[in-house]
């Protein structure tokens, strides 16, 4: 790294202090990718336990289990962590392999739409099961 007063740097002192770079979000995606990874490692054991407990259930049995508060909260946490994680991961994959600017832009928009739709649909289903309507 060049010194803070290097004549070769075009970064302003304010930009250097903020440390967010050209993306304007700094390392937040990098950090959230790891944060959600650790969250999922912790949540994976109860989630696997929940899925196994309804392995052979009919709809009424599954609805009863998924609608109970603790199970619903664990599932919601896992869904939020996993979809946040996969949205960031897919963006990294797109940025690494898609070099055409237009296709890249469309892919990134599609990634955001897909992730948002999957997240909202899953959360809606859990909340509907929880409210029992």
């Amino acid at each position: 790294m060049s010194g803070s007063n290097s004549p070769k740097s075009v970064r302003t002192p304010l930009g250097r202090v903020r440390g967010l770079g050209s993306s304007h979000s700094g390392t937040s995606d990098f950090w959230r990718q790891r944060l959600t990874a650790v969250a999922m490692l912790l949540l994976m054991i109860p989630v696997i336990f929940i899925v196994m407990s309804v392995f052979r259930s009919n709809q009424a049995g599954v609805a009863q289990v998924l609608g109970s508060p603790i199970v619903a909260i664990v599932m919601l946490l896992f869904i939020v962590a996993s979809i946040w994680h996969m949205k960031i991961g897919m963006q990294v994959v797109i940025e690494d392999y898609v070099h055409d600017e237009k296709i890249k832009l469309i892919s990134i928009i599609g990634n955001n739409f897909f992730s948002a739709a999957v997240a909202l649909a899953s959360i809606y289903a859990i909340l509907k099961l929880s409210s029992g309507v």
Binding site: V62, A63, I83, M86, A121, A125
Partner: peptide, 12 residues
Amino acid sequence: TLLLVWWLIAAA
């Protein structure tokens, strides 16, 4: 995750 969503929506 499409399978997961399908499972959850179907249960609901």
